[in-house]
Design a protein around this nucleic acid. Structure first.
Lengths: 188, 188
DNA sequence: ACCTGAACACCGTTCAAGT
DNA sequence: ACCTGAACACCGTTCAAGT
């Protein structure tokens, strides 16, 4: 599964490539996983578990702070493996680790609807950020600077977008991620 | 592109299948699209445009109501084509239609960071819902009922999840979608 | 410009046969 | 149980050649 994650990061996860990397014949993989989709799900769940789940139960922190620190940790893990993020979205509920995260989240927020809203925001933000990464990401500042030149638009046709260029470039920043999360958590 | 969307809905969009559906040889498609990814992006942008963009400029409505009505319309369009949703996430910023939506959203909310938060929520919610659909969705009530039996967990290991089963089953409801959106928009 | 036919370099998955 | 070798039924993309 480590090899599978590596290949995913390289954007080249095929059963054949995986087999050759672990020194097997393609067919031999089907002893361990019924099919490619099962392999991908397993990798997704393992990746989800790489974020420090204990942050969600950290003593001495407010519920909001626990959620924030876990969300930041999860984002960091997942953005290092952007190609795996779509699989995470797919397994958002089903996997065993996802269940554990869900239970902890329910403990922090009294209304289950609020906890789902947080999940939606966190996974949505990560998914949008991951979508524009090919491999492991360059430093944040670099990505923002790139977006600043990248996202130039016609000022006549899109005046507000043009005026907000700097903020839009920073949509993928940790600050923006935290800002949105806090806004959501601070809702009445 | 209509044929391509049809094939996507059937979960079987290949260049060869598309070619045969439009009465061409696979190679001929490369006159119109440089590669498969370009085709998928084009379909995604066209799908985005199917939601009524004028809702975002509807006179006589508050900014929040405009956003809500457009978000609901977008969700309805996209959930009819769940297989295309990942492509929408990928093209969330780049496409011409996405630019237009972004500009309108900036008009409704004074802080660009808030408008991005709304985008994250709306696209995130749609992505999570789409992830558990194979083809065009059954009626909402049916899906919720299915989830209610689907999502049974061990009450000992996951007591809160077990207790909230009914609400969790309704995570994919229009009501939950609207509830989360309103909560986000009502943040101070 | 648009299309065909044919090829190239791949895929995931299955399965008899071996150990 | 685990693995190989070989096959089956596919892929996306390219490209000479035709109209």
């Amino acid at each position: 599964m480590d090899a599978a994650l590596e290949l995913m990061d390289e954007g080249a996860l095929t059963m054949r490539a995986l087999a050759s990397r672990v020194g097997l014949t393609p067919g031999a993989l089907y002893t361990y996983f019924p099919d490619r989709a099962a392999l991908v799900s397993a990798v997704a769940d393992r990746l989800l578990a790489e974020a420090d789940l204990t942050l969600l139960d950290a003593p001495g922190l407010s519920p909001h702070d626990r959620i924030e620190s876990f969300a930041l940790a999860l984002r960091e893990v997942l953005l290092r493996h952007p190609a795996a993020v779509p699989a995470i979205l797919g397994a958002a509920f089903s996997g065993p680790t996802a269940l554990h995260v869900g239970e902890s989240l329910l403990r922090e927020l009294s209304d289950p609807r609020a906890s789902y809203t947080v999940m939606v925001y966190v996974l949505g933000a990560i998914a949008l950020e991951a979508a524009e990464l090919e491999g492991p990401p360059p430093p944040e500042e670099e990505r923002i600077a790139l977006r600043r030149t990248y996202l130039v638009v016609d000022p006549e046709a899109f005046p507000l977008t043009h005026a907000a260029n700097d903020v839009i470039a920073a949509y993928i920043s940790t600050d923006q991620f935290r800002w949105g999360l806090r806004r959501l958590l601070s809702a009445p």
